[in-house]
């Protein structure tokens, strides 16, 4: 006798549905199964028309973010057993337009990402032949945490500011800007300042901290934003108080 659990999955087909509906499936509850394994069971054996994204099933590609029982989660790293006896509600991520079923449109993030210049900026680009730019382990540690972002969008789904104001750059994009700002090899912090200091940049954040709470990779976007606010405030203060040459 196999244990079973009920999955309540949001369905939405834009060609035929005016609004989302919920579909219920009873599936086997296996000890090792993630929520994603449950969805795959539905797709392979019960209803081939269910659409959702997934790929690596090891928590690193960032494809399979969904809302599980009200919380944004990577479904490949969230286990059915933790929700027993169920039922488990699986919905698309909040704060994004729904394309279909559990698939959301993350185009907004993809357009914002280049605006924060998430690449290493040097005043001069040396050829590889000059060798590596030295970096002490402690210097690497300064930005390491912020380099762990997998762009899974859970932080945008959790962010109350983004929910109200879609112009807000958002947690992951700001954390990635900080990832380069804090990299000892980077010389581009001033180029990133304009976009980060805009009204829809860091100052829009009200420091609710939901982004850091839901991050599956322990990136602390809220911390990145707070830290950058301090930097930006100091910079504007310096600009006010000090003569140009001393800044």
């Amino acid at each position: 006798m196999v244990d079973r659990i009920i999955l309540r999955v949001t369905r939405y087909r834009p060609e035929s549905d005016t609004e989302p509906m919920t579909q219920e499936h009873e599936i086997p509850l296996r000890k090792d199964w993630s929520v994603l394994d449950g969805l795959n069971h539905i797709k392979d054996h019960l209803d081939g028309t269910l659409s959702y994204r997934w790929s690596c099933r090891m928590g690193v590609c960032g494809s399979c973010g969904m809302t599980v029982n009200g919380e944004p989660k990577l479904t490949c790293a969230t286990f059915l057993g933790d929700y027993a006896p169920g039922p488990v509600r699986v919905e698309p991520l909040s704060n994004f337009p729904v394309v279909r079923d559990l698939v959301v449109d993350i185009g907004d993030f993809m357009r914002k990402l280049p605006r924060v210049k998430p690449w290493l900026i040097r005043s001069e680009q040396e050829p590889p032949a000059v060798g590596e730019y030295p970096q002490l382990p402690a210097e690497r540690e300064e930005y390491e945490q912020f380099s762990m972002c997998i762009n899974c969008m859970l932080c945008y789904a959790a962010c109350p500011v983004y929910a109200l104001d879609q112009e807000f750059l958002g947690p992951a994009a700001i954390a990635l800007a900080q990832r380069y700002n804090l990299d000892s090899r980077d010389q581009g912090a001033s180029e990133r300042m304009d976009v980060l200091s805009e009204a829809d940049g860091i100052w829009a954040c009200t420091f609710v901290g939901e982004c850091s709470a839901v991050c599956p990779k322990d990136v602390d976007p809220a911390g990145a934003i707070q830290r950058y606010k301090f930097t930006a405030a100091m910079d504007s203060l310096k600009a006010l108080l000090l003569p140009r040459g001393a800044r």
Binding site: L120, P128, E132, Y133, Q135, P137, S147, D183, R185
Partner: peptide, 9 residues
């Protein structure tokens, strides 16, 4: 490395 890859040190 020059593009920013965080190689261990």
């Amino acid at each position: 490395e020059h593009w920013g890859c965080p190689w261990s040190r």
